[in-house]
Amino acid sequence: MKVCNGGVFVKQTSKQKLKLKLLPKLFLSFCKVGLFTFGGGLSMLPMLEREMVARRKWCTKAEILDYYAVGQCTPGIIAVDVSSFIGYRVCGVAGAVAGPFAVMLPGFLLMLLMATVLRGVAEIQLVQSAFVGIRVAVCALITASVVHIVRESVGRWWQIVLLVSSFALVAILGINPAWVVVGAGVLGLFGSFRSAPKDGAQP
């Protein structure tokens, strides 16, 4: 995690009240970002740049990248992290809540619409065939993302051990992933995993 110096998170002062006026604009901007990104997470970046940096000039690209870095260290999905950090930067606490809500709202509504439509046509044979193909296409897309994620997260041999053991714990032993994450968190807190290769105990 690399964080640039120089006030990534600007302290909120009394100016915050003035900034609240920006809340409707913030909401609309994030709705736009949510509407025009597919796949979420990292694919949001170009749209965020265009909207938040170029158009609104609310933050810089370097700051957004910092938010991504920090967001990767906090629980929850990255799109929510980044939008709440930008929201906080622009409108304080209200913005931190409004950002994630706005970014998911278009997808949420379209998802409801799609679910309703699908429920009506689910029995049609052609639709079922189409979905068999769509599932395969989605699998191919996910395979590419998974390879990317694995490459990003593994650098040392003990990290490979961790990856394989967490895979085995869930895929073979059927353990609830939450326990694996909690175990790994404890291991990270108290284990001494310096950047030098050391023992990779199981989580």
Partner: peptide, 8 residues
């Protein structure tokens, strides 16, 4: 559908 996959 557009938007973050997790929330969708």
């Amino acid at each position: 559908v557009p938007g973050p996959l997790g929330t969708n």
